[in-house]
Design a protein around this nucleic acid. Structure first.
Length: 423
RNA sequence: GGAGAGGUGGCCGAGUCGGCUGAAGGCGCUCGCCUGCUAAGCGAGUGAGUGGGGAAAUCUGCUCCGAGGGUUCGAAUCCCUCCCUCUCCGCCA
């Protein structure tokens, strides 16, 4: 969330930002609650000051065995007033919080203006479209023909948007996960994490999934526990309510987890194939950085994610999300979009974001600056490195051959027991 | 699931019959002194949040001893609820 004082002092900018992000939120309520709250706060603090000093003198009187009856009677009245005021303030605090939690992050100045995904400028492109002398197939056709993806049985076991992997398909997904983790831990300096796949409400609120996006989460019956929609949630919360030392920053974590999303509101979208599942696998990259170099860290994180596709030798492009397409918690986001010949489109395979102190403020993650003094909020970043299911889609579609077989990319073969082709 | 113990500042750890304890003592850290360097020693300082005054150094109010309620003029200290940790027993991957 944003800093209360920041909103108070820059309310016009915040309202402009809400417009740019197509967010329908009126801040007039915020204004009135905020001023009211501050009035009551001054009042109650004055009374508390009186109570504190009086309590001291009552203690003194009692020690000297003198009568303190009249003061006690007076303070009884004061305490009653304080209790009443505090209750009012508490109510206002809750109202204020619920507004604060719904305000999205301020975009960084380098974020281009725009209404939606069509306005995202392409930052750079890597590689080329594979030249195919035949009509490329979509991955769902390839996967079913090869017997490695079984959409019907997945739906039978659970429902729509659940898929059964089989044989070389299951192994290929596992190979991709292991390959990615090895790259990030061995070559990019990340520490591997295996976090809980179920988290509590506090963790979900810290990273921004709650309260606004409850509809997209799977909640466990009768508990305040949720299935994670991304490893970002448990991994960012590793340092919830902690103060790090400046020399510890930046911290790099990578984690494989399954991800669970309801995909509410996307009925009829990407219904075929592996693109939009309720459960998918992802290797995530998470960073905690000092504010002064968090944007350098974002560029590096992006490069780390890209390197996976480069080693797989798959064509992709990078877009800079515009104000209208930017996620709720992010200040800036790059999407990596991979080329899918079977569908003839670029599809998002990774989303790399700097959240600045937006999540850190919610999660209360701070660090003590080198020069000493009060702790500051860290900047948090994360990005997919990459979504494994969609990477598998990209491999199938880009490495397909005319006969429907799929060549396994060189770098994955050691992870596939030396297998070279799936046929 | 049953029985018991406990949750205090960056860490360890005191806190008596509720009141000069935002918190003793120690460690760590910072600054200074001293020894040729290192180690040791000596002295001083060192929690967080939020509000107000001042150009600033800084001064000042309020809150915080797992979380939330309650009792009281006053609670880290008493009562209730919840959460977490540890030990033992049972069960289980």
């Amino acid at each position: 969330m944003l800093n209360l004082k920041f909103i108070r002092n820059n309310i016009d900018d915040v309202e402009q930002m809400l417009q740019n992000r197509n967010t329908n939120l009126d801040l007039s309520e915020f204004r009135s609650i905020d001023t009211q709250r501050r009035q009551l706060l001054t009042e109650t603090e004055g009374l508390k000051n009186k109570r504190n000093t009086c309590s001291d003198s009552i203690a003194l009187l009692k020690k000297q065995k003198q009568d303190a009856g009249s003061q006690i009677a007076e303070m009884r009245e004061v305490s009653r007033k304080i209790k009443k005021l505090d209750a009012q303030i508490n109510k206002l605090d809750n109202q204020l919080d619920s507004i604060l939690y719904m305000i999205p992050n301020m975009p960084h100045e380098s974020v281009p203006p725009g209404n939606g995904e069509d306005d995202n400028p392409v930052v750079r492109t890597w590689g080329e479209r594979p030249s195919m002398t035949f009509e490329p197939q979509a991955h769902w056709t390839l996967g079913e023909q090869l017997g490695i993806l079984d959409f019907e049985r997945g739906a039978k076991i659970t429902g729509a948007r659940f898929t059964l992997y089989r044989g070389a398909g299951a192994r290929l997904e596992r190979a991709l996960i292991n390959f990615m983790l090895d790259e990030h831990t061995n070559n990019h300096g990340y520490t591997e994490i295996l976090p809980p796949f179920i988290v509590n409400k506090t963790a979900m609120t810290s990273t921004g999934q709650l309260p606004k996006f409850a509809d997209d989460l799977f909640k466990l019956e009768g508990l305040d526990y949720y299935l994670i929609p991304t490893a970002e949630v448990p991994v960012t919360n590793i340092y919830q309510n902690e103060i790090l030392e400046a020399h510890e920053l930046p911290v790099y974590f990578t984690a494989y987890t399954p991800c669970f999303r309801k995909e509410a509101g996307s009925y009829g979208k990407d219904t075929r194939g592996l693109i939009r599942q309720h459960q998918f696998n992802k290797v995530e990259l998470v960073k905690f950085a000092a504010p002064e170099n968090s944007y350098d860290e974002l560029e590096k994180l992006l490069v780390n994610a890209e390197s996976i596709l480069q080693k797989l030798n798959i064509h992709y492009q990078i877009v800079n999300l515009c104000t209208g397409d930017l996620g709720f918690s992010a200040s800036k986001t790059y999407d990596i979009e991979v080329w899918l010949p079977g569908q003839g489109v670029f599809r998002e395979i990774s989303s790399c974001s700097n959240f600045e102190d937006f999540q850190a403020r919610r999660a209360n993650i701070r660090y003590r600056p080198k020069e000493g003094g009060k702790p500051h909020f860290v900047h948090t970043l994360n990005g997919s490195g990459l979504a494994a299911g969609r990477t598998l889609v990209a491999v199938l579609e880009n490495y397909q051959q005319e006969d429907g077989s799929v060549v396994i990319p060189e770098v994955l073969r050691p992870y596939m027991g030396g297998m070279e082709v799936i046929r």
